[in-house]
């Protein structure tokens, strides 16, 4: 178990370092960052001033080590556009994105788990096929478009929910539904296939032979085993949702980190963009690590992996 933990932790740290390096390289893609910051109408002199001011005249490896050293301490520098530290900006907006992600995941689980179980129990019936059709539709739905449709339908026509903006719980419903839509197909398929496998196993036959109630067999014996892969995919899906939050937050004008990133990209505010990429990647790494640990706790067979 200790060996497994150490191995997973080492990989996570190495991946985190890779992502740190990549997010540094990302902003150096254009060749000369000073020219990009200065904008198209800047003179050569302006560019030189910016190069001095942001320390871009130093050798690249010095800039890289400087960025790495500070980033590890949670210091991402100052925003070019907002008069604030990047870490403050992200800290203020991360709760919105996290809440949205959790709402999305919660909604997705509420829909995906029962449907997946029903489909498995009624395998190869019309019910099963209908559920699988729902998965296909969910997979094909462009999230930003679904967001707009909901805005027109629930927001304008029915007047049930606020159309867009940041605020109380009611502002999280529509974006949450849209996010959930993207996670439902894979969660549902996995629950279904896990349940089908579990239900055809020997221990279920034993449980039936013992005369246990149908519900008790389904929940205690079937779902408990099917839930193992679902737990890890749920964590991974949350990571994907946070990464994809930029689209949903922009559509609904929710001021989370995704919206912050979009604003910063359009304003050439690279320190912020860099930091958001990094933070979302680190959260994803932490979530997958958590998922692996949860799996090891739930399923002892995996601990030797």
């Amino acid at each position: 178990m200790v060996k497994f933990l150490l191995r997973r932790l080492t990989v996570a740290v190495l991946v985190a370092l890779t992502v740190l390096t990549l997010s540094f390289l990302l902003t150096r893609l254009s060749g000369d960052l000073a020219i990009s910051i200065a904008g198209p109408s800047a003179t050569a002199q302006d560019v030189e001033i910016i190069r001095q001011a942001y320390g871009l005249n130093r050798p690249v490896y010095v800039q890289y080590l400087d960025w790495l050293f500070r980033a590890v301490q949670g210091d991402f520098g100052d925003s070019y556009f907002f008069r604030d530290r990047v870490s403050n900006l992200i800290g203020a907006r991360l709760p919105i994105t996290m809440t949205l992600g959790l709402v999305g995941l919660g909604l997705a689980l509420i829909v995906a788990l029962p449907l997946g179980i029903i489909a498995a129990v009624r395998e190869n019936t019309w019910l099963d096929r209908t559920v699988m059709m729902v998965a296909l539709v969910g997979q094909a739905m462009p999230s930003f478009w679904l967001g707009l449709i909901l805005m027109v339908w629930l927001g304008l026509n029915l007047g049930l929910l606020p159309i867009s903006g940041t605020g109380g719980p009611e502002y999280y419903v529509m974006p949450g539904i849209v996010l959930a839509f993207s996670a439902i197909p894979s969660l549902m398929r996995l629950t279904r296939s896990g349940m089908i496998e579990a239900l055809s196993s020997d221990y279920i036959r034993t449980a039936r032979a013992k005369g246990l109630s149908r519900l008790s067999i389904l929940v205690k014996h079937g779902f408990r085993n099917a839930a193992i892969p679902v737990v890890s995919i749920a964590a991974v899906q949350l990571g994907f949702m946070l990464g994809g939050s930029i689209v949903i937050e922009t559509v609904f004008a929710m001021h989370g980190v995704g919206y912050l990133a979009w604003e910063s990209i359009s304003k050439n505010d690279y320190p912020v963009v860099q930091a958001v990429v990094l933070v979302l990647a680190l959260i994803y790494i932490a979530l997958t690590l958590l998922a692996d640990l949860l799996n090891a706790v739930l399923d002892p067979r995996l601990r030797t992996a």
Binding site: V19, L29, G243, G244, I246, V247, A261, Y270
Partner: peptide, 23 residues
């Protein structure tokens, strides 16, 4: 495996937007 893990941790939409914004 490391390459795959590292790639998966990168938020695709965000990076694609950032690259498009830069270049």
């Amino acid at each position: 495996m490391f390459l795959i893990t590292a790639r998966l941790s990168i938020p695709v939409v965000l990076v694609a937007l950032a690259v498009a914004g830069l270049l």
